[in-house]
């Protein structure tokens, strides 16, 4: 076997092994992947409190504020009036506010919604499927999605009106 030939074989073998290395490292990093700003918002359909259902992709052309909450979460409760105020202010500006309740019964959700005085649509994620799909860790978590279905911001924090106002500016069509 010529030296040239041997060199070629070594390069080929090292190439294959290197590809395996890259793949392994990549898949180990990808396994704990999260959604981030710039990603497409995964589509879903959920039942709405009070009847009917909403499909995310049907809202293309409008900005979407997607707020994940649970009635056991105090910061969620605290930010609800802020969201409501912004909803009232901007509901005719082509943005949709949606609350996604995580896994609770309609009775509990309804009580809570009345307690905090929210009027924007609330979706019921009974099986927590969408919570998983959106990789929700601590709540409240709020996704800001633009008119093309692209995530512009993810906030894992108790929102204030100023914060909502600022992020909203980016998704208004």
């Amino acid at each position: 076997m010529g030296k040239q030939n041997r060199m070629f074989i070594r390069v080929a073998i090292l190439g294959v092994l290197l590809a395996a290395l890259v793949f392994a490292v990549y898949s180990s990093l990808a396994s704990d992947s999260v959604l981030k700003a710039g990603d497409a918002a995964p589509n879903f359909q959920l039942e709405q409190l009070g009847g009917g259902s909403i499909t995310l992709n049907d809202l293309r052309g409008k900005g979407v504020v997607l707020n994940f909450w649970g009635s056991w979460c105090k910061p969620c409760e605290a930010e609800m009036p802020e969201l409501e105020k912004q909803y009232q202010k901007h509901k005719d500006d082509g943005v949709v506010f949606i609350g996604v309740n995580i896994g609770q019964t309609p009775v509990t959700v309804e009580t809570f919604v009345k307690q905090v005085g929210v009027t924007f649509p609330i979706l019921l994620d009974r099986e927590r499927e969408i919570t998983k799909l959106y990789k929700i860790g601590p709540i409240p978590t709020t996704y800001f999605i633009d008119k093309d279905g692209k995530i512009t911001d993810i906030l894992v924090v108790q929102l204030t009106e100023e914060m909502i106002e600022e992020k909203l500016a980016k998704i208004m069509p």
Binding site: L17, A20, L21, A24, V25, S28, L29, S31, D32
Partner: peptide
């Protein structure tokens, strides 16, 4: 077991 450097070590052992 899924940290990048541990996986790198395993693959290097394989190599």
């Amino acid at each position: 077991y899924s940290s990048w450097w541990f996986v790198t070590l395993l693959v290097m052992i394989g190599m």
